[in-house]
Every structure is written in C-alpha cells, then in structure tokens.
C-alpha cells in the first residue's frame, strides 16, 4: 500500500528591510504636527483655548517637531538591523550653525526687515533667493556634507533621512527667534511653527536628494550648485506666494499660508520621492540587481 506524505510548500526566505522607513517616519511626524496645530487653531476658534501670548506654550510648540523626530525617527532607528548613525549630531550642528552663523548674518548683514518685507512679488523672489534662501540651504547642506556625507550614505533615501534633522535644527532657531521676539498668540505660533518646519523639511529633502545623487548617480559638474540654487529658488517662491495667500481674504490671515504649505509640501516631497524611486529603479536595472522594498 502506497503511503502518501503531505509536503508543506517550501517557504520563501523573506528578506527583511534593514533600514528605517524614512517616508513613513517623516509622514507620521508631519501629520502629528499638523494635528497639534489644527487642534490649537480649532481650540481657539471654539474658545476652548485662550488666544493669547504664552511664552511657555510657544517654546513647547517650537520644540514639538524635535520631540516628534526623536520619537518617530531616532528611536525607530534603534529597532532596525542597520540604523543610521549621527542623526542627533546633524540636528545639533544645524542648530549651532543656524543660530551662530545664519541668524547673525541675517540680522547684521541682510536686515530683511528694512527692505525685503515690503518688496513686491518678483523683487521678493529674487531678494530671498540670493540672501535668506541660499544662506539657509547652504547651512543645511554644509552640516550634512561635512559630517555624515559620504560615509553614512548607503542609498538615496539617506539623503532625505539626514536632511530632516538638518532642516529641523534650522527651523527650530528660526521659530524660537520669531516666537520670543514677536510674541505671537498661541494660534499664530502654532501655524507659523508648522509652516516653517514644513518648508525647511520639504526644501531640505530636495537638497538631500541632490547630495545622495552626487554620491550614487552620474551627475554633471554643476549638480550641487544647481541643487542649492533650485532649493533656494523654490523656498523663495513659496515665501512670495505665501504673502499672497495670507492676504487672500480667508477668515484668518495665517490659514492661507497653512493651506499653501500643505500643497507645497505634498507637491515637492512627492516629486522628490518619485525622483528617488525612479533613480533607484534605473540603478538596479543597470546593475542587474533586485530592489528590496
């Protein structure tokens, strides 16, 4: 009598993704920040929160993105097989460079309050591109370029991963100076913090892509200068359109800027994600390798 034996199908050896999912962490951080800002704004509209200046509240709002980054990114790195090193170093250096170099140059040399604030649309784009925009992008770029690049860069998304702490450090300095000097109400502070953080993360991610591509791809000799100019120009474009948005007649002057930054972020980060993904596909195809997803 024949005996039949049931054979279980051979299990495919699944390959674990060894790195932290950059986009997932970033989206979580941005969504939670958006929810907090929205809660503050709605709370004020419903008279649950008093819309007054609160030094402590404003400082907490400015520090919130850093806290979210620590929870969703830094701690997540500890749970993966190949964690990224030096994220907090990049963050700290970015704060130091932004406060020690960029802010000093802005206040002592460029003095934008005297000429740029009242400038027209095109003058504003040109003025910001060649002063505050390029200064901010260069500071963030330099922090990454002269610390973790190229040793810590293993694949293209590392550019985005390291650009986030650099952007958060710069945004923290800008936000703290604004919140402590101008003393805005809590709702205005929440929206301004969100706008600044989104703007710097978005443009920083673009620069991160340029840095990663410089190491991994085949790029022309003007790749980095072009990247810095493009990042600076795009952030200036946002600044110029933001002025139109805040006077667009919506109920609150700040809500226009908030809506604009949401669209801007989705569009630019979507473009960066597409560029990185397609570049990875091309590299994998050229090398005859299979991508891990």
């Amino acid at each position: 009598m024949l005996e039949y034996q049931l054979l279980s199908p051979e299990e495919e050896s699944g390959e674990l993704y060894p790195y932290r999912r950059v986009w997932r962490s970033l989206i979580l951080e941005m969504v939670v920040l958006l929810l907090v800002a929205a809660a503050v704004f709605i709370g004020v509209q419903l008279d649950i929160i008093e819309d007054a200046y609160s030094r402590t509240g404003n400082i907490l709002l400015a520090l919130l993105p850093i806290g979210l980054f620590y929870v969703f990114s830094v701690r997540s790195e500890q749970r993966v097989a190949e964690p990224r090193q030096g994220l907090l170093v990049v963050l700290l250096l970015s704060v130091i460079v932004a406060n020690g170099v960029a802010w000093t140059v802005i206040q002592e040399v460029f003095t934008p309050d005297r000429w740029l604030v009242e400038a027209g649309f095109f003058s504003r784009i040109i003025g910001y591109t060649f002063t505050l925009g390029i200064l901010a992008e260069f500071c963030k770029y330099a922090v990454i370029r002269y610390t973790v690049w190229p040793d810590r860069f293993r694949y293209r998304l590392d550019g985005v991963a390291y650009s986030v702490p650099a952007a958060l450090g710069y945004a923290l300095v800008v936000n703290l100076h604004f919140l402590l000097q101008d003393e805005p109400t809590i709702s205005a502070a929440a929206i301004r913090v969100l706008v600044n953080v989104y703007l710097h993360i978005t443009v920083g991610a673009l620069m991160g892509y340029f840095l990663a591509e410089l190491l991994i791809g085949r790029v022309p000799f003007f790749w980095l200068p072009f990247g810095l100019f493009l990042a600076s120009f795009i952030s200036s474009l946002f600044i110029a359109f933001r002025r139109i948005a805040v006077v667009s007649g919506l109920g609150s002057r700040d809500i226009g800027g908030l809506l604009l930054v949401l669209g801007f972020t989705v569009f630019v980060l979507g473009a960066v994600a597409f560029l990185i993904d397609s570049a990875d596909e091309r590299t994998a195809a050229r090398a005859g390798l299979r991508r891990l997803r």
Partner: peptide, 22 residues
C-alpha cells in the same frame, strides 16, 4: 570635488549678489 568647490563658489557669489541687491 569639483562639484563641492563649485557649490561653495556659487553660494559666495549668490550671497555677494544678494548684498548688492539689498
């Protein structure tokens, strides 16, 4: 290296131009 040096040169040139514009 060329890219990195050009990046610094570009930034310095842009900042200089920015001061002139200001």
């Amino acid at each position: 290296q060329v890219n990195s040096l050009l990046a610094i040169a570009t930034v310095l040139a842009m900042l200089g131009l920015g001061v002139v514009i200001r």
